[in-house]
Design a protein around this nucleic acid. Structure first.
Length: 255
DNA sequence: ATGACTGACGATGTCAGA
């Protein structure tokens, strides 16, 4: 079972790249974030022609999450447990082969000094609550978390420390979420630093490898024992008109 | 010149992203 996550930064701007990637990599499941499209305009048919069903939760201009799956999805749920009707579309979940797969787009937070930052921390706390209340099943929590976990995940730890994406309050909130028993699948297979999932479009960030690792697949501890491989597809950033994020891919042995 | 952002909305700029 191959499961991937990718912040595509607009599925309409990226659908050809995404379709090419699906043909090449053939994941069973692709979680997407920042689709930036209402559900009626999602390129559902193009994905269906490649054999994928799509569960999506989109909105105009901002946010938007989706799960494309070649295997049947059930118990599709949108949003955090206490989301109101006007909440940003940042979370969708589905059960696939007994796995509870989630596609999450954690708020950016804007700046540690602004109220949006507290909203980011609160969103992570509410995600934990949502997982605790969700249906049973091994969790595969995928998405753009907008937090770099440790010094290996940022290109300049001393400059970044205390800044957005690398702030102790963000680390605390993410650690509390992972205390549910979730493991960073990528780190099961790669120990070294300098491996990033995002680079700024500006300033030649990718060319200089000045990036951040902020996109993750977190798996339950029992599932971690079945994680055969994990990788990030840097090639996706070398294509024409790339997303600023690249896919993270994990391979799980069949339970 | 060895640097230079991208997408949506719906405009000839503004906002957001990270």
């Amino acid at each position: 079972m191959k499961i991937a996550t990718w912040n595509v930064n607009s599925i309409r701007a990226r659908h050809e790249l995404v379709l090419d990637w699906l043909k090449r990599v053939e994941p069973d499941v692709l979680c997407m974030q920042e689709t930036k499209v209402v559900d009626d305009d999602f390129p559902t048919d193009e994905l269906m022609r490649l054999g994928y069903a799509v569960a999506m939760a989109g909105q105009k201009t901002y946010n938007g999450v989706a799960i494309a799956s070649r295997r049947p999805m059930k118990d599709i749920a949108v949003g955090l447990h206490d989301d109101g009707p006007e909440a940003d579309k940042r979370l969708i979940a589905a059960t696939i082969d007994g796995l509870r797969v989630l596609s999450a787009y954690i708020p950016n937070g804007k700046s540690p000094t602004l109220p949006a930052f507290q909203g980011k921390l609160h969103w992570l706390a509410r995600l934990r609550e949502t997982l605790e209340r969700g249906p049973a099943g091994e969790i595969v929590l995928c998405g753009d978390f907008n937090v770099a976990i440790d010094d290996r995940d940022v290109y300049d730890p001393e400059a970044m420390r205390g800044q957005l994406h690398f702030h102790p309050e963000e680390h605390k909130a993410l650690a509390h979420l992972l205390d549910l028993g979730l493991v960073d699948a990528f780190r099961l297979h790669h120990e070294e630093g300098g491996l990033y999932s995002w680079w700024d479009y500006r300033g030649g960030g990718f060319r200089k490898n000045q990036g951040l690792r902020i996109d993750y697949v977190f798996v339950g501890k029992a599932l971690a024992a079945h994680c055969r491989d994990a990788s990030m597809d840097v090639d996706a950033r070398r294509r024409d008109k790339p997303s600023d994020h690249i896919p993270v891919v994990v391979e799980l042995d069949q339970p």
